[in-house]
């Protein structure tokens, strides 16, 4: 499938918008809120950490919906959406894990602990890595799409687990920004959320959601183009 001029135009506009947003959000995280008192400058990592997590959460949610739609309609476009969003989500959750680990070093004194939240996000990442492995291991294309959709639906349980565990386990040391939690604030490295911090957090979340959508769109375009090229190759071979 060849992209129309109109579609390419909108993709370009969205790309510029998301690039602008990313730069603006990064500058905002450095300048707008003041440094935090008990943690110092490292607290600013929190903005990219939470932003990229919500970005990957968005893509994984899109993937599970696309998987369900694929199984119902058997339209290949849903499969392309599913595979593309998983790939982008995997990249963004790697950002979440890396920034979290570096934030944890001065705050908790170690890069990694087997805290339930950290464990579940590691499980989540591994599950989606296995998803990509599954796609590459099955040859029959129709079966590959079907199995991938099934596995994308199962894999989403790890995302739900990641979000739920922080609110139900009493031994979680990960900070909760919004909503209830069962541990006391001082062991977790929590901080006072001033209006400036809150605005920056929301702006970053918004930015990374837009960014993940645009990246997924680009990724789908690659998939479409490679399908299109494959078809043309086959038609040349068929004509000879």
């Amino acid at each position: 499938m060849e992209y129309t001029e109109n579609r390419n135009f909108w993709l370009r506009v969205m790309t510029y918008v998301s690039a602008f947003l990313l730069v603006a959000a990064t500058i905002m995280s450095f300048t707008y809120p003041g440094a935090e008192r008990s943690m110092g400058e490292v607290q600013r990592l929190f903005y990219i950490h939470l932003g990229s997590f919500f970005g990957s959460f968005l893509t994984f949610s899109v993937a599970v919906v696309a998987g369900i739609y694929y199984l119902r309609t058997r339209d290949n476009k849903w499969d392309r959406l599913e595979a593309s969003s998983v790939e982008i989500g995997l990249g963004l959750s790697a950002v979440t894990i890396v920034t979290g680990a570096i934030w944890a070093r001065p705050t908790w004194g170690t890069y990694w602990t087997w805290d339930p939240r950290l464990t579940t996000i590691a499980i989540m990442w591994l599950t989606y890595a296995a998803y990509l492995f599954l796609r590459s291991a099955i040859e029959d294309p129709e079966r590959k799409r079907r199995f991938a959709a099934v596995y994308a639906i199962i894999a989403f349980s790890s995302v739900i687990l990641t979000i739920v565990i922080i609110r139900v386990r009493p031994d979680v040391i990960h900070p909760t920004v919004a909503g209830p939690s069962t541990t006391s604030a001082d062991v977790r490295g929590e901080f006072n959320v001033t209006p400036r911090i809150r605005d920056t957090v929301f702006f970053n979340i918004f930015t990374y959601c837009v960014l993940s959508a645009v990246l997924t769109w680009h990724r789908i375009r690659i998939e479409n183009k490679s399908d299109f090229i494959q078809e043309r190759k086959l038609s040349i071979l068929g004509n000879m």
Binding site: A130, I154, S158
Partner: peptide, 21 residues
């Protein structure tokens, strides 16, 4: 699902272990 894959012996643990963690 994994029995249909090319490398089914390796795919099963890779797919199953994260799910059953």
């Amino acid at each position: 699902m994994s029995v249909y894959a090319r490398a089914r012996e390796t795919l099963l643990p890779i797919m199953l272990l994260p799910v059953i963690l």
